[in-house]
Each structure stands twice: as C-alpha cells, then as structure tokens.
Design a protein around this nucleic acid. Structure first.
Lengths: 118, 118
DNA sequence: TATACATATGAACAAATATTCATATAATAG
DNA sequence: CTATTATATGAATATTTGTTCATATGTATA
C-alpha cells in the first residue's frame, strides 16, 4: 500500500506481518469507494430519509414535512442518495416519489443499528 | 418527528402515509447515533485501518508504515475508532497493539463492500 | 398561453473534520 | 537518573460538507 518508509526502529520485528497484511488489502480505489458509501450513511438527515423509505415510497414534500426541514435541503440530500444508488425514483405528474434502491440498503442500516443498539 | 408544517398544497393527500411512517421512525437520538457510527466508517484512512486489522492485530507504527502515513495521523484516527468502540487495544511494553473490537465491525464493512463491488 | 405547483440546482455561508507540526506522556534499557 | 523509543495529544490549517436563499426547470390545469 505504501513505499517502505522507516518510521520505527523495530521495523524489522513486524515487517513480515505488515507485508502479509499489505498483500491482503483490497485495492486503494475499492477502499475509497467503500468509505464514500459509508460517508453517505454518515449523516442523520440522510439516515432519516432512508429510514422513512423503509416503510413506503414518499415524495419530496412528504419527507420534508416528516423531518421538519425545507424542500430544498431534502432535495439536495436526495440527490446525494440518488447519485450513490441508494434510492430510486418515479415521476407521477408534478410529484416525484422516492424509494429504497434495493434491499442492500436496508441490510446495511440494520447491521449498523444492531451495533448501536447494544 | 416534526411539527405540522404546511409545505405543500397537496399535504392532505399523503397526510396519512406521513403519519404512519412518522410513527414507525426510531427515536431521534438513535438515528443520530447510527449516523455517527457510519460517519466513522466514512473515511478512507479509517477504513484502511480497519481492513488491515481484519488480518491481524497491529501496532500504531505498523499501520503507519502500511498506509504510508505519519504516526500522528494514525494515532488520531485510532482514537476516533477507539472512542466508537470499533477497535480495542493492549499494551506490550512501549508498543500498543490494536485489534478489531468485535465481529460486528467486520460484518458491517463486508456488507458495505458487497454493495460497492456490484 | 399564463398560472400554479412540485422539484431541482447554483452560490454563499457556517460548521465539521483530517492532517501536520510541535510537544507531552509512557515505558524500557543502559 | 538519563536517553531513547512508541504513542498520544493540542493547536492550527485547509478542505469538505450541510443548509439556506434565490431561482430555474418540469408538469398540469384553467
């Protein structure tokens, strides 16, 4: 993952472990994407939106009302969720309904919730 | 979750849905904590540290070397991980070894990775 | 076509945060 | 006790990011 930088004097002691771990690390880009995904879940407004969509598809205005936030703020966050493929949407006249993109979203959140509820 | 704010003119159309969803939403504080948890995973340095610990416990210096970052930067991030109970540590003389706190950490990351790898 | 309504978006601002640098603390060896 | 080594931490800085405000876009209706 990095060039060999001599940071510690005992470097030769754990060198083999570091090397072994290094070889098993996923690619840089994949780890970056993974962090980006979790970053999307790492905002309470977005978590609330996703949780709301657990129950039912909702339009932007419904969500804004539900969370007591402006339409604009919700729309901005829905864009983030959309770009990261966590929600899908359908248009019905003037109204746009958002829904969870897939069941992965639900399971990631549930897994996190289990850890928090302990 | 919020007071009744009249944002949209069709508010009465989806009112019952909003109400139903609202009743099923977890508590504000729980959702906040959940977002905070994901926020911790939402940084590529921290993800790399956690992934490295998948294989073996490692000392601060090992991790710094592995990621090609300064000891200070790693130590700061380990503090965040420690505070959020994602890693545990043991002291052996001058060296401090870090390890994953529990298997939840691994499964949350794996679940996220599945979504990213699609 | 003109108006109203639902949503989207760009710019600006404020708040949060990751890294660096300098330094402090903890532990061992001599 | 002193020097050395491993880690932790506080302050400062630069970057990222969430919300607001104003406004644009898209759709239906009169």
């Amino acid at each position: 993952m990095s060039d060999h930088v001599e940071l510690c004097s005992y470097i030769h002691a754990h060198e083999d472990v570091v090397k072994a771990v290094s070889e098993q690390m996923p690619e840089e880009e994949l780890l970056y994407d993974l962090a980006e995904l979790f970053k999307v879940f790492g905002d309470s407004t977005r978590i609330k939106i996703l949780y709301a969509l657990f129950e039912s598809e909702l339009c932007v205005c419904d969500i804004a009302q539900l969370l007591g936030m402006t339409q604009s703020a919700i729309s901005h966050q829905l864009r983030v969720l959309k770009q990261n493929h966590l929600v899908k949407y359908r248009r019905d006249g003037k109204t746009v309904f958002y829904a969870l993109a897939d069941e992965h979203v639900r399971s990631i959140i549930n897994q996190g919730m289990e850890h928090v509820e302990e």
